[in-house]
Simulated scan of single mutants.
Amino acid sequence: MVQCEMCGAETGSPKTVKIEGAELDVCDDCADFGTEVQTQDTSSTSTKYSTSSSGSSSSGGSSGSSTSSSTGSGGGGGGGSRRDMFDEMDEVVQDYDDRIREAREAASMTQEELANSLNEKASLIRKLERGEVLPSDSVQRKLERELDISLSTGGGSDDNDWSGGSSTGKTTLGDVVKRKD
């Protein structure tokens, strides 16, 4: 008997299922949470695994698993672009070291003077100007304020891709869905 890697139940015939990108050996009840991975017998294809939908088997229990197993495509693809928290963040420009050095020299400051005005170590300024380290968010803000420069590229440049919500006047899914508690 093998233990299910999701719920811990003993199972005689575990199924290998891909859930959130990880392949797990699970029992029949937990197999509904992902897509079943089957090894191919022929080696003529370039991929080792193929995935198939496991929506045909249903647990039917009162644990609510039937509502969570029908969540659309299993994470393998989709037509829409996926966004995450990193899309909203500003990135440090590639030539930040040159910008810092040129701005400091234009202000007729030494590395030590700049470090003192920022309340940082002079060794940090040297490393920044050589491009050895990236500035932390707080140091980046101090440098931008002190030297009147910009060290970041604007993140979230594709913010206009999404159009929806109540400002468009169209009905959204949130306006229609009723929660079952």
Rank of each mutant, 00 (worst) to 15 (best):
G60H: 03
E132G: 11
K121A: 15
R83N: 09
D87G: 14
R101D: 03
G21Y: 12
Y49P: 01
R130L: 15
L134K: 07
V2M: 13
K48Y: 10
G156A: 03
D25A: 15
C30N: 01
G72K: 06
D32H: 02
V26F: 01
E105K: 08
S65P: 00
D41I: 11
V26G: 00
S81D: 10
S54R: 01
Y96G: 00
G61D: 13
E20N: 12
Q140L: 15
G156L: 02
D181E: 13
K48P: 03
Q40G: 10
E23F: 07
S166M: 09
E129N: 08
S166F: 10
S43Q: 12
R141N: 09
M6I: 15
M1T: 12
G78W: 08
K142T: 02
G78V: 13
T110A: 06
D84Q: 04
V93R: 10
C4Y: 02
G131P: 02
T16H: 08
T171S: 11
E113N: 07
P135M: 12
E102M: 02
V93D: 01
V139K: 00
L124R: 03
G12P: 04
T16S: 13
S81Y: 06
S57V: 15
G34L: 01
L124K: 06
G131F: 03
T11L: 05
I125W: 00
S166V: 07
S62H: 08
P14E: 09
T110L: 07
P135R: 02
D175R: 05
G21F: 11
T172V: 13
L128W: 00
Q140M: 14
G75K: 00
A106L: 07
E120L: 08
L24C: 04
D158G: 05
D29I: 13
I19Y: 03
V92R: 00
S57Y: 13
N160Y: 11
F86V: 09
G12S: 13
G165A: 07
G154F: 05
D98A: 06
E129T: 05
A107S: 12
T172D: 03
R145E: 15
E5P: 01
D28A: 14
V26I: 15
K178D: 15
S81Q: 10
G77I: 06
D95I: 10
V2H: 14
N160H: 08
D25T: 06
D175V: 04
S138D: 15
S167N: 07
L124I: 09
N116Y: 02
L134V: 04
L173R: 09
E132L: 08
R141I: 05
S167W: 08
T42G: 09
K18L: 15
S150E: 08
K15T: 07
S13D: 15
R99V: 15
T11Y: 02
S136I: 04
S50A: 10
L173A: 13
D175F: 06
D28T: 15
M89F: 11
S53C: 13
E10H: 06
S108I: 05
